[in-house]
Design a protein around this nucleic acid. Structure first.
Length: 136
DNA sequence: ATTCTGACA
DNA sequence: TGTCAGAA
C-alpha cells in the first residue's frame, strides 16, 4: 500500500496546483476554508498539496462547473466516504449483514450524484437551490 | 520570485 | 471571485 502513501505526500505549492487544476489561488484557498481540502503547511506557513489533494480539487472543479455549491460538494464527499466504508465492510464481512448502518436512502443519494457527474456537460445541469433539496 | 492573510472603489 | 496591500 505504498502507492497511497505516495499520493498523500505533500509535494507541491499552490503555484503548481494552480497550473495543474486551472483553478485560481483564490478558489483553491477558498475551498480549503470550507473544509473541502486540507493541505499541510511548511515551516514558512506555505501550503503543500498532495496528488490526492489535486485530484480532489479536480473533482471540486467539475462539481462547481455543474453548478453545485460548497455544501452540496461536502455532502457528496461524505456520501462517497460512506459508500467506500460500506464497500470495505462487505469485503471484510461477506457473510454478516453489516450494511445495517447505511440506509438505502443514502445509497440512492450517492448513486444520484454519480449520475449527475456521469451526465456532466449535459442538459441535466441542476442549479444550487434545486440540488440542495435532494440533500435535505 | 512566491505565497499568505485580510479586506472591498 | 477578482484583486490589491503589506508582510514573510
Amino acid at each position: 500500500m505504498g502507492d497511497q502513501v505516495r499520493r498523500n505526500m505533500p509535494l507541491f505549492p499552490i503555484g503548481i496546483v494552480k497550473k495543474l487544476t486551472e483553478l485560481t489561488p483564490r478558489q483553491i484557498r477558498y475551498y480549503e476554508e470550507h473544509g473541502l481540502i486540507f493541505p499541510i503547511r511548511t515551516d514558512g506557513n506555505q501550503r503543500l498539496y498532495s496528488f490526492n489533494d489535486v485530484d480532489r480539487l479536480l473533482e471540486i472543479k467539475e462539481l462547481i462547473e455543474q453548478g453545485i455549491n460548497i455544501s452540496g460538494i461536502k455532502q457528496i464527499f461524505i456520501m462517497k466516504q460512506q459508500f467506500n466504508g460500506l464497500k470495505h465492510n462487505i469485503i471484510e464481512n461477506p457473510d454478516r449483514k453489516v450494511q445495517k448502518d447505511l440506509t438505502e436512502k443514502q445509497l440512492r443519494s450517492y448513486l444520484k450524484k454519480e449520475l449527475l457527474v456521469a451526465g456532466r456537460h449535459g442538459k441535466t445541469s441542476l442549479i444550487q437551490g434545486e440540488l440542495s433539496r435532494f440533500f435535505h
